[in-house]
Structures are given as structure tokens and as C-alpha cells.
């Protein structure tokens, strides 16, 4: 049986206690929420910790609340340790941002969504089939750039790691322009979800040491009201699998039905959720039409760099960026689309 290595485990019930533990513990301390990412990584030993601090008993970090928002009407604030399944069950989330609900419902499998949290999904370690392997397997390739090794096996010669961002909520939250709150002792900063990420497989988060991601704020109702969303995801099976490609679309239409603003964000084709401004530009100022969508989909394809570090042929995944982007944008614009709804979203 694959087992965890030994570590110290703490379950503080307040943020203050958590900060104290983070500050006092040895250098190798990690936070854990649902554990669905950290525990497998620790069992395979590519993430290590002598001390693990769980956030799951900090009640203030759990739940979905309606807040006043910041001038954009009432908004939803989701605590970082809220279970993915509780988000899927939330009718408020589904009514405001149906595609966020759908993206969340597509993550892994039903029992895993009863354990995994939204904060955890945002902070999900970048993935790669050369990295998400056991200690023994990684020894057989002399490790890789992301951990102990010197070569990125996906692109030997590359100075950077190409592990990809496989979070489904991150591209969707970035598309709707959600923000996250990062707290450290005595400090609190709020940044956009988009600002949470670097495009680097190793240093993929902008969270500073000592900071805890405590909540995710969705845009207020005045924004949500005009926002049309879509989320399309490609993977082999309808459950369990991570995305090998996801397309998150958020469009804001004016009263006349013209696109005022658009965000097209791709998942699993870069080390971070990849916004495609060129795709967005192709839509802004347009009424829904297939020509504009196709231009935007081509832009999405040009922006994506799928690598050979997950399922399916890389070149084909590149083709699929265009197809899936087109389908997702069509859905958001209420245009008919050819691609049969994949059985797996």
C-alpha cells in the first residue's frame, strides 16, 4: 500500500493559531485543506513537509455568503475551505454563474468533491506526467526540473518547467473576474484570480510565504446580471480525469446585445490559466455571430501551447483548442454549435 510519510499535523481552529503555527514551524511546513492534492503528492513524495497545518477546522473559512460587494450589488463570497460539492449544490452560484457551477461539478469524481475545497482547487499544484509519479519512478528518470532534477523532460533544454495548470475553477473564476483574499498576520490583500498565478510550472502561485488564501469573492450582481458564461472541458473520461483542455468564457453584453467585454481563459495548456486577450478583442463590439467566434477561436489556438505531459496527442489537443473555444463561445452567445456536447462535461 502506498502510504504517507510521517509528519506533524495540526488542526488549528482559528486563523491566528494557523499563522502562529506557520510562523513557528520548521521550514518545511505546508497548509492543507481537503488534502486531495497534497496527500497524493506526499505519498508519491514529490511534495514534502515535516509539518502540515490543516485549515479544515477554521469555521470562518467555510461557507458561501452573500455580501454587499464593492458597489456592484450583492455578491457571493466563498470561504476557501468550502467543499466543491457545496458549491455545486449552491443555487445562488448556479443562478449567477452557471458555468462556474458546471466547472466545479466537472472536477474529478463525486467522492473527491466531498473532500476537495475551492481554495485547494485554485492552489492545485501544476501537473505533468513526468512529475506526478512515485519516488521510485522519478528516480528512474533522474527527477525533473520541477523537483530535484535539472531537465524539463517535456521540453529538454527549456530553462523553465512546463507543468500545466489543471484547475477547472481557476480559468472560470479568472474569466468572470473573481478576486481572492490573501491574509497574513495583520495584513489582508485582495487580488484578482488572474493575479494569483505565474506562468511557471514551479513558481505558479503569487501567494507569499505566510499568506493564507481565505476566500474567493465573485463579482456583484450588477456584473453577474449581464454576464454570460460557458465552460467546456476536454478529457478522456467523464469523471476522475483532470482536464487536458478547458475553455472558460465570460461575456458581458450591453442592452442591445453587443459584447461590451469578454474574457476567454484556457485551462491545462499553460502553467497558469491562460487568458487570451486576442480572442476577447475579436468579440468585443460584436453582436453574436459565428464569424467573430471563429476569429476568436483561432486566436485561442494560437495562444495555447499544449505539451506532451498529459493524456492525448499533443497536436490534436492543439486542434481541439479551436474547436472547444468555438463551441464554448457559441454557447455563451446562444449560437448553434456543431460539436456534440461531449459526454464528459
Amino acid at each position: 500500500m502506498l502510504r504517507l510519510p510521517a509528519f506533524e499535523f495540526h488542526q488549528p481552529s482559528t486563523l491566528e493559531e494557523a499563522f502562529a503555527l506557520l510562523g513557528s514551524a520548521a521550514p518545511s511546513v505546508r497548509l492543507v485543506a481537503g488534502g486531495t492534492d497534497l496527500w497524493p503528492n506526499m505519498k508519491r513524495r514529490h511534495q514534502k513537509a515535516e509539518t502540515v497545518v490543516s485549515l479544515m477546522k477554521i469555521d470562518e473559512l467555510r461557507g458561501i455568503q452573500t455580501t454587499n460587494g464593492n458597489g456592484n450589488g450583492p455578491s457571493l463570497s466563498i470561504g476557501a475551505i468550502t467543499l466543491l460539492d457545496d458549491i455545486v449544490r449552491s443555487s445562488e452560484v448556479r443562478e449567477r454563474f452557471p458555468a462556474l457551477s458546471r466547472a466545479t461539478a466537472s472536477i474529478s469524481s463525486p467522492p473527491l468533491r466531498n473532500m476537495a475545497t475551492l481554495g485547494g482547487n485554485l492552489c492545485l499544484d501544476t501537473r505533468c506526467t513526468y512529475y506526478n509519479q512515485t519516488e521510485e519512478w522519478r528516480r528512474s528518470i533522474d527527477y525533473c526540473l520541477k523537483e530535484e532534477g535539472t531537465v524539463c523532460w517535456v521540453a529538454p533544454g527549456s530553462p523553465t518547467c512546463w507543468a500545466h495548470s489543471a484547475s477547472d475553477t481557476a480559468p472560470m473564476l479568472a474569466a468572470i473576474e473573481a478576486t481572492v483574499v490573501l491574509q497574513s498576520p495583520g495584513e489582508l490583500r485582495e487580488i484578482s484570480v488572474s493575479e494569483l498565478f505565474h506562468n511557471d510550472g514551479i513558481e505558479y502561485l503569487t501567494i507569499q510565504p505566510g499568506e493564507v488564501l481565505t476566500r474567493i469573492d465573485l463579482p456583484g450582481s450588477s456584473s453577474a446580471k449581464h454576464c454570460r458564461t460557458a465552460f467546456w472541458k476536454l478529457r478522456r473520461r467523464g469523471s476522475i480525469d483532470f482536464a487536458v483542455l478547458s475553455v472558460a468564457v465570460a461575456l458581458w453584453l450591453d442592452g442591445a446585445g453587443t459584447v461590451e467585454k469578454a474574457n476567454i481563459v484556457l485551462g491545462a495548456v499553460a502553467s497558469r490559466p491562460l487568458a487570451v486577450p486576442n480572442a476577447a478583442r475579436a468579440l468585443v463590439g460584436q453582436k453574436p455571430n459565428i464569424g467573430a467566434v471563429r476569429n476568436a477561436a483561432r486566436a485561442a489556438r494560437r495562444a495555447a501551447t499544449p505539451m506532451d505531459n498529459t493524456d492525448f496527442k499533443t497536436q490534436w489537443r492543439g486542434l481541439m483548442v479551436e474547436r472547444y473555444a468555438e463551441a464554448a463561445m457559441c454557447e455563451a452567445m446562444d449560437l448553434p454549435h456543431q460539436l456534440p456536447s461531449p459526454p464528459h462535461v
Binding site: M1, L2, R3, F9, Q11, G35, T36, W39, P40, K43, R44, S54, M56, D85, S108, S109, P110, P111, L112, N114, M115, I240
Partner: peptide, 30 residues
């Protein structure tokens, strides 16, 4: 039972407070 210990197969599912979870990915200490 257990089939992977990594949360990939569902074999170890048990109910915690009525909801199915994967017992290979929760600490008993929790």
C-alpha cells in the same frame, strides 16, 4: 478496500457524516 491510495479509483469510499469520501485521502486524525 483500496485500489490506488491516491484518490483515483473510488474503492475505499466510506461515508463521513453521510457523504461519500475517499478514506485513502483523509487522515484519521481529522
Amino acid at each position: 478496500k483500496h485500489g490506488c491510495e491516491l484518490g483515483e479509483c473510488g474503492t475505499c469510499a466510506v461515508l463521513v457524516d453521510g457523504r461519500p469520501v475517499l478514506s485513502c485521502l483523509v487522515l484519521a486524525a481529522e
